[in-house]
Write a protein that binds this DNA or RNA. Structure first.
Length: 580
RNA sequence: GGACCGUUAGCUCAGCUGGAUAGAGCGCUGCCCUCCGAAGGCAGAGGCCAGAGGUUCGAAUCCUCUACGGUCCGCCA
């Protein structure tokens, strides 16, 4: 149930009737007719721009249309008043029974309230994290992980069929480096003194891998040359790293549906197939690129390479897919991977990259556009840097000084819920401050706490009511006499709940889960506001002497908690029944 | 030289498909704690939405240019 959609449907049906009656000319496009909450609550509950949108094509004055429409709208029982305002807005005031109905509806549908069918079961692949399998995840990955995971849940809630996917970069030189690093740890496990030259990974996390390798193969690789052990150790090490990464993700509550190996692309001929597809479309050629203007690399020399004509699909320059020595560039398996996603039949693709990969957006979009013939949209979301603070002081990370902050560090210090919620309190493309102390602060300016506090207060009210012998299970509350819920402040809070289904659709359409976090903060604020008014005005308290009245008011409180739980569920955060 | 992202209150940031007098928290000023959880509450001040053009009934929102900040720019991953 989406109240705004319901009222919009009412507006459209009245407009159709006006056309029927000859008031409006036929054939008017009503796509741009909106019904939304007015910015200023004094204007009423909802506003429609119908008269303004239609005035020009109908050749009529906005106010003339608005007045006729207003009269018709008021015939509906849900509409108390419809007033023409400003340049031709129609402000609607809705009957209390509408808002009371929202509360009942929330309690009847539970945390599924707001679930949308806008996705129509279309399949969407969300690829995120996709960090190199060479070590534990760090804070930067954390933001991508949280964002991607919340987005996936959001789309699921909005009616899409979502696949969460991780692309393992296990085909390039970096996994060879990993293998050599593990080999050194392996030698170390055999009691040898080793040094870690530049170009190897010295991290402690490989010590255990070296020992595990020793346990598995004994000393057969000791003293052997690289060509003997490289492939085997590479597989072993990559496997170990992916287990580590999966555990990191699990600590944050992220679970992928599928891990896709870059290496598998080489074995299956997918790269060749993808490139053949582009070649058939006339988008592959041999050529020489211009050097980049302004900043010419010192060692630049023109070389003929195999190029993808990405400029045909919106890119700025064509991109090499094969190096001059005949091996693939990094871009080639990327193309093949997206080719595979297209072949799998997804209706839409979403990639989450770190902002430092912003330069790859156009070429990836070009590739998908070319591979799918423009039929599969690819949206790429960039997540900006996370700036760490400790007690207000910038917290510098340094691998060398050992102050390198991993995902695990963050989760262990502040918990997965706080981490996830806080990471979503900024738009994905804006930098984010993360202060280890402030995110745990229990005050109004910490959104995580403020939302949880609202949920905890409701739990507290439910407990008190139960102690007083008042039945407060959801079924009872939904069937309570909600007509008793008639104070303007209470109806305003119910109206806030009515915005939830609409917010879901907006957030899903724009692929912006942070909107959910902001909404929850807003809803929590409205709830606390009503609570505070109860301090001065006892009739606004949730617990009353008359059990019937209590039930009606508690129904409203419980409905807020249900929506908060639903929203937190999308963000992957556990609601807290009590705070200490 | 080019591409992408950003620029909204003193600070940190929201702002829906273009909609009415642009919002929140912090900070500031004033008042308030016997009260369902004061881990605070209420009220107020504070804005040329970076600048300039354009599109239209209407622009923080769309387009163009400029300024400032960030990220990136042939075979690396």
């Amino acid at each position: 149930m989406n109240l705004f959609a319901d009222i919009r449907a009412l507006v459209l049906s009245d407009l159709a009737a006006m056309t029927q009656a000859g008031v409006l000319p036929s054939g008017l496009a009503t796509d741009n007719v909106t019904v939304e909450p007015p910015r200023d609550a004094a204007h009423g509950d909802m506003a429609t721009n119908a008269a303004m949108v239609l005035a020009k094509p109908a050749g009529m004055k906005p106010r003339d249309i608005a007045e006729v429409l207003a009269a018709r709208l008021m015939e509906d029982a849900r509409v108390v008043s419809a007033e023409v305002a400003g340049p031709g807005f129609l402000n609607l005031k809705l009957a209390p029974v509408v808002w009371q109905g929202v509360v009942a509806s929330v309690l009847e549908t539970g945390t599924d309230y707001g679930r949308s069918t806008m996705g129509q079961g279309k399949t969407v692949n969300v690829e995120y994290v996709s960090a190199n399998p060479t070590g534990p995840l760090h804070v930067g990955h954390t933001r991508g992980a949280v964002f991607g995971d919340a987005l996936a849940s959001l789309l699921d809630f909005a009616g899409y069929e979502v696949t969460r996917e991780y692309y393992i970069n296990d085909g390039g030189a970096q996994v060879d480096v990993l293998a050599r690093s593990v080999y050194l740890r392996y030698l170390e496990a055999h009691g040898q003194e080793v040094a870690f030259p530049d170009g190897t990974y010295p991290g402690d996390y490989l010590i255990a891998v070296g020992e595990a390798l020793k346990a598995k193969v004994g000393d057969v690789y000791v003293g052997q040359s690289e060509d003997v052990w490289l492939e085997d150790i590479r597989d072993f090490a990559t496997d170990a790293m992916m287990k580590l990464i999966e555990a990191d993700l699990a600590s944050l509550g992220v679970k992928m549906d599928r891990f896709f190996s870059e290496k598998s692309l080489y074995d299956t001929g997918l790269i060749e197939a993808a490139l053949a597809d582009l070649r058939d479309k006339g988008l592959i050629y041999e050529g020489v690129l211009e050097p980049p203007k302004g900043k010419k690399p010192d060692d630049w020399e023109p070389r003929e390479q195999t190029l993808f004509r990405s400029t045909e699909h919106g890119d700025d320059v064509d991109r090499p897919v094969m190096k001059s020595d005949g091996s693939w560039t990094y871009f080639a398996p990327d193309i093949a991977y997206h080719y595979d996603k297209v072949q799998r039949g997804y209706d839409a693709l979403i990639d989450i990259f770190g902002a430092d990969h912003g330069g790859y957006v156009k070429r990836m979009k070009a590739a998908v556009s070319a591979l799918s013939g423009g039929t599969v949209p690819l949206d790429i979301k960039l997540t900006q840097l996370v700036k760490l603070f400790k007690n207000g002081e910038p917290f510098k990370m340094s691998k060398r000084a050992g102050t390198f902050v991993t995902l695990r560090d963050v989760v262990e210090q502040v918990g997965p819920g706080v981490t996830r919620f806080h990471m979503l309190t900024r738009k994905n493309d804006a930098p984010l401050d993360f202060d280890f102390d402030k995110v745990l602060e229990q005050s109004r300016d910490n959104p995580v706490f403020y939302v949880q506090y609202a949920f905890a207060r409701v739990t507290s009210v439910l407990n008190k009511a139960t102690e007083a012998g008042v039945a407060v299970d959801d079924a009872t509350l939904a069937a309570a006499n909600l007509n008793l819920l008639d104070h303007e402040a209470e109806l305003a809070l119910a109206a806030k709940l009515a915005e939830w289904p609409r917010l879901i659709e907006t957030a899903a359409r724009t692929n912006e889960p942070h909107r959910v976090a902001f909404y929850l903060y807003d809803l929590a604020g409205a709830f606390h506001g009503l609570w505070n008014r109860g301090n001065d005005l006892s009739e606004l308290r949730f617990l009353q002497d008359d059990p019937k009245v209590s039930q009606a008011k508690i129904a409203l409180a419980r409905a807020c908690a249900v929506v908060i739980a639903a929203g937190l569920g999308i963000l992957g955060v556990e609601p807290a029944k009590e705070l200490r």
